[in-house]
Each structure stands twice: as structure tokens, then as C-alpha cells.
Design a protein around this nucleic acid. Structure first.
Lengths: 213, 213
DNA sequence: GTTATGCTGTGATAGTTATCACATTGTTGC
DNA sequence: GCAACAATGTGATAACTATCACAGCATAAC
């Protein structure tokens, strides 16, 4: 992979994620090769867009032929870095936290959940769905440091989100995926992504309202 | 609200959602008025961006003063259409589905969940967390039509997503929020939004990988 | 070997979105 | 009533992103 020095649009990264997802399913033995046109149909992206997205990172296809399905999948995984194995923790073991603890694809996307935290005394000490023991929020900093946890996933209520973030940061966390509908603050050294389900809801509401007029 | 005939950027809608979220919390009695600068600090958006976003829909502030906090909140809610009360269903009552059934903010964002569907015989007939009875997937079309359900939220596995989508569409659904990591196909008359948690994971993985280099 | 074919890779172009700078206008104090 | 002030609203500009059209290159056919 030869990464070029251009700045990559975030939309490109999002689409690469889609491509790799479909490549995993399309890449049967009967489809060893795939063209940007066919992949584009599945992903609902124009062929030119796919080629442009890939061109930021190098040349992966064969002109006149197309892309080796399995090889392209591996290349994109390499670009995205989902072949890593980051020690991960989930903070907030409500329904959403439990859902995430159960998601198989965490493992397939480079994350290994090794601990979970909650503030509810009834939950602390019990085992979460995938065999991980739930610990007290007050242990976060110590545990993150000792277990060298890289990624924190926040699924607490809004009120706790910033406090929990600070504890993760103090422990030396590298990245945070925040599901609480608040923009938590982190130092520049920490990578942060906010996932806002409420904003998706609002967006849908907006689109529907528009259509009615 | 005077809607102008420009096309509104999707990013603007996403930010409006953030604004309304913060306005609800910032708008105490001691803060009856707020400036774009102060709101921008909380939302981590530039003041100019906020004013531009609002200008697509009209004039809501007072020059030299700022915005009436409560009034602006109401105006944005009106723009987004989150003051409606759409009958909503959740299809797929796994952990994620349960998490969504429990989310308070559904109600606060214009959605009223009145039914839930699942294919698991052990779940059918039982009551989901918020008092909604879980029905069989095979009832979707009939139920959507009879109960005049407007919104479908899909939290099934990938394999079932398109089938369930078709059933919702046949029943006359108006909008779909899809959490399955596949781009389901719907006719143009149906409004669709895909929420891809996997793509958020991939994006975080990418950012972390970049930082390491 | 030569030509025809087909799909990639990419520079140029068009379109979209964010930023900037300032004109505008309501408010306050005298 | 007038001047000074403060924060909005917006046209102009810059930055970014997607689309297009075709050159480039590997393959296949003859």
C-alpha cells in the first residue's frame, strides 16, 4: 500500500467501509474478479467514485479486467486498519452497551473487547454477555493503564459521558467511540468519533416533514 | 418559518440536530438569550456556520442581542419536524432493538413506538420493555397498513433486512431507519436512512492507524 | 505480432459546502 | 434623539468533493 500525501475525504473512508463489507459477501469462488461497475451497483456508488476513492491509496486493479475480489478486500482492510486487534472496553452496560458487547463484527473490525464498566452495584461483578466481567467505573483509569486498553466505547447516559471520558483519557486511552448525544472533549492526542443516533432520527424526521409539503 | 427554496446541505440538518440538543440543556432561566458564539462553543461549530445554517430557513435572532433560547429551540424543532408524533415500529428485537425500544428520546423526537416484530417464536407474544407486544414478522404488512404506521426501524441481521424492508414497504410505510449493515432498496416514495455502526468502527480504526504512522 | 477490446487510473471540470468580512439593525446610555 | 455598541444575516470567496471524459495498459483474438 502506497499512501499518497493528499488529505483523504471522510466520505471516502465511509465508502471504503461499505466496499469491504460488500466484497466480503460478493467474493465467492465464482466471482474471483469484480469491476467497479458491478461493485458500484451493490454499494449504490458510481464506478468513477469507487476508482477515485481507491486511487488515493494506490493502484489495486488491472486495466481491462477489474479487481481481484479477495485481494481488494484485503487491501482495503489494510488501508482502514481493521486487521489490528485493539484492546477495547465498553463503558455503560445498558441495553445499547450489551448490544455492542454481543456484536460479532467488533472482532472482525479490529477490536477485542476485554472489559466493561458500569456504575450500577447490581451489575458490577457479574458477567456481561460475552464473558467479560463488569467492573466499577471507579476502576477505569487504573484498568485502562494496566491492561493497555486502546479503545473506549461510551454508552453511558449524557450526564456521565464527560466524566467517563476524562477517566479513560487519564488512563491513557488512544481512541473513543462515543454514543452519548453530547460532544465530549478530549485532548488532541486522543482520536474521537461521535455516533449520534438522535441526529439520525432528527434527520429522518426532517426528510419526512419535507416530503409532506 | 419561511423555508427558502435553496437545497439544504445534509450537514446543516445534522448540525441543527446538535443545536437543538444543546439549546434544550443551555436554555435555563438564567440564559434566556444566547449568541451564536456561545452556542458554537458548546457545539464545537463556528458562529458563522450556525448563522449560515439558520439563514437557510429564515431570521430567528435579534441583531446586537442574540437568539431567544427557548424560541430558537422551538423554531429548530419545527424545522426538523420533531414535534410530530409518527406511529413507529421496531423490527428485530435483539439487544439493539431493545435498546431502541427503551430510548426515551424517541418520544422526544417525534416518534411513538406502538409495535415491535421479531421472528423468534419465544419472543412473539411477550411484552418488550416499554409495554409493546412483540408480533410475528409475518404480520408486518397487515399491521403496518391497519395501524397506519409511518416509520420502521430495522434492527434485524443482514440476512433478513431486505425481506423485512419489502414487507414494510408493501404495508405502506413512509420512512425507514436501517441499522443493518446493508444498503436496503426501497422505492423513491419511501424515505430511507442507513445508520452504519460498522462504518463508524472502521472510521475509528482508520484514524487510529493513521495516527500511528 | 498486430489489432481490437474493455476496464482502470486520473487530470480537468463542475458542483457543493464552509469561511470570511462587513453591511445591517436592534438596543442601551446619555 | 443621537451616538456607540454588539451580534445577526448574507454576498463574495475559498476550500473541498464528486463527476466526467479519456488516456493508459493488460488481455484476448486472429
Amino acid at each position: 500500500m502506497k499512501t499518497k500525501e493528499h488529505k483523504i475525504p471522510e466520505a471516502t473512508i465511509k465508502r471504503l467501509s461499505t466496499y469491504v463489507n460488500y466484497l466480503g459477501r460478493l467474493g465467492t469462488d465464482s466471482n474471483p474478479v469484480i469491476s467497479s461497475e458491478i461493485l458500484g451497483e451493490s454499494c449504490q456508488v458510481s464506478p468513477a467514485q469507487i476508482r477515485k476513492d481507491l486511487s488515493y491509496f494506490g493502484e489495486f486493479g488491472v486495466r481491462g479486467v477489474g479487481y481481484d475480489t479477495k485481494k481488494l478486500e484485503a487491501e482495503i482492510k489494510d488501508i482502514l486498519g481493521i486487521n489490528h486487534n485493539w484492546p477495547t472496553t465498553v463503558v455503560g452496560v445498558g441495553k445499547l452497551g450489551q448490544a455492542l458487547l454481543n456484536f460479532d463484527f467488533f472482532r472482525n473490525h479490529g477490536f477485542r473487547i476485554i472489559t466493561a464498566f458500569d456504575s450500577d452495584p447490581n451489575k458490577i461483578g457479574t458477567e456481561a454477555a460475552n464473558g467479560v466481567t463488569i467492573q466499577s467505573i471507579s476502576n477505569i483509569e487504573k484498568c485502562v493503564r494496566e491492561e493497555k486498553i486502546s479503545i473506549g466505547i461510551i454508552t453511558t447516559p449524557v450526564a456521565a459521558a464527560q466524566d467517563v471520558t476524562d477517566k479513560l483519557v487519564d488512563g491513557g486511552i488512544k481512541g473513543i467511540l462515543n454514543f452519548a448525544p453530547i460532544k465530549v472533549k478530549v485532548p488532541e492526542t486522543v482520536t474521537l468519533r461521535n455516533v449520534s443516533i438522535t441526529s439520525e432520527l432528527d434527520n429522518l424526521a426532517y426528510l419526512l416533514t419535507q416530503k409532506k409539503r
